[in-house]
Amino acid sequence: MDGRVATAPVSLGAPPDPVDFEERRLIAAALRGDQRAFAALYRRHVGAIYALCLRLTGRRDRAEDAVQETFLAAWRALRTFQTRSRLRTWLHRIAVNVVLQAARPQAARLELNEGAVGPLPELSTPDSSPPIDVEAAIALLPDGARRVLVLVSLYGYTHEEAATVLGIAVGTSKTQLHRARALLSVRLGLEMP
């Protein structure tokens, strides 16, 4: 019997993500008060956070304000950041809260106006008009319908999660999503002839 030592084929699986560690360094530096490190974190995530805020608010000026508030809140609360979650996920949660807090004064009115399924607003476009951008069509949705669509259809929230975050009933969330999809389909010319 011959025993020879050989080397097993190397399979490392997924290597550690260097981006993650670079982010840790930036977080550590920001915790020391280094604003340049925080600026670097901002640059990494501003695109995703701005997209979320723009879609939730439907307005560029409000989205910009929300982004500013989100990063200021993040700077203040960086010490409470739980490393179990990713920074982007954490920023995402802050952004949703910021947008909803800014809209809170209108919340009751929105719930009254949009909670029940009413007739769809006139959104259909004539066949001769140019195709409508999906982002623009989302921005034109009523606030309540847009928020549910953004959270559930774009960012993967369950209806239960969306209802909790938005402070509405689960049934309302479902109704709003149905309404948003119907409005979007009409707006984008996706309805069956």
């Binding site: 600026a39 501003v46 701005y50 910009e64 982004v67 500013q68 999906v134 999809r181 984008l188």
Partner: peptide, 22 residues
């Protein structure tokens, strides 16, 4: 509609730099 939503980008660059305000 699902296809159209799925094609939306994950990130949108703001039209101007927001960092100076922050």
């Amino acid at each position: 509609l699902e296809d159209a939503l799925a094609r939306l980008p994950q990130e949108i660059v703001p039209t101007h730099d927001l960092w100076p305000r922050i």
